[in-house]
């Protein structure tokens, strides 16, 4: 794992992995959405409005995965001080926030015809909204910290600690529909249910849904890689400009002494 923490090695892999993930993700997600919306069956109870599931579930998964990756990267940043871990955590924040917002919006649009209301303050919806606010807080904190500090130190460490503490919300989101009464349905997908075909969801829904999850996960990965490359390029340019400024200052100082 330490080998991949080398920025030069990361850039060699990310150069081809970024467009590959983005193009493959966009193609797979588009195919899954067309499949689900155009050719998938309607639900016996909810009718056609159930087709929102092919967008809502992947965005919910990526909203939670986004913060999980922030928490893991923050842990690595604090414990091992890998130079790329802090960059990875910061890069994951924006796509995680976007997918969380999309999950809340598509869920609200789905709730109006299915539940008769746009919003209820129940455990699942409220904990997901808290996750969106956590993302906003993390982005503000990470943006306010200095870029030239060593990873896992100083103000940068504050964002990493915030990332770790915020992870408490992830199991709350997951188990909220089991712990509290909710209009939101309990989990429809489980590994054992998918593998054995005995889950509460029919295969005609599961296959396009998992394809959509795969497509959106690739898009998320591509966006995180692109944002990591952006942060790395910015910090490399800043470091070079700083070195040049210091060298110029040292030369002018030497000239003044010689004079």
């Amino acid at each position: 794992m330490h080998g991949f923490a080398n920025p030069a090695r990361f850039l060699r892999i990310a150069t081809w992995a970024t467009p590959l993930c983005l193009i493959a993700g966009l193609l797979i997600a588009s195919a899954a959405l067309v499949w689900g919306v155009g050719f998938g069956p309607a639900d016996a109870l909810q009718g056609d409005v159930v087709r929102i599931i092919y967008l809502h579930v992947p965005t919910a998964w990526l909203g939670m995965m986004g913060w999980s990756s922030i928490a893991i990267a923050s842990f690595v940043e604090i414990v091992w001080r890998h130079p790329l871990a802090g960059i990875a955590a910061r890069a994951a924040a924006l796509p995680g926030a976007v997918f969380t917002a999309l999950c809340l919006i598509t869920g609200s649009i789905w709730g109006r015809p299915a539940w008769g209301t746009w919003w209820v303050w129940d455990g699942r919806l409220t904990s997901m909204l808290v996750l969106l606010f956590l993302y906003f807080g993390y982005m503000a904190l990470a943006g306010a910290t200095q870029h030239d500090e060593a990873p896992g130190q100083g103000q940068g460490r504050m964002a990493a600690i915030f990332g770790l503490i915020g992870a408490v919300n992830i199991p709350i989101i997951h188990y909220s529909v089991l712990w509290w009464n909710s209009l939101h349905q309990p989990p429809s997908l489980s590994v054992s249910g998918v593998v054995t075909g005995t889950g509460p969801m029919a295969t005609s829904f599961v296959v396009p849904l998992l394809t959509s999850v795969l497509g959106f996960t690739l898009i998320y990965t591509g966006v995180v890689l692109a944002r990591m490359r952006m942060i790395l390029a910015d910090s490399q340019a800043e470091a070079r400009l700083r070195r040049k400024a210091m060298a110029a200052q040292a030369r002018s100082g030497a000239l003044a002494e010689g004079w």
Partner: peptide
């Protein structure tokens, strides 16, 4: 409702992908 959800989802996702790529 399905159309509104997909329009918002597609526009936002494409904007995020394009924005991140151009910034990079």
């Amino acid at each position: 409702f399905v159309t509104a959800a997909y329009a918002i989802g597609a526009i936002t996702t494409l904007a995020m992908v394009a924005g991140s790529w151009l910034s990079m």
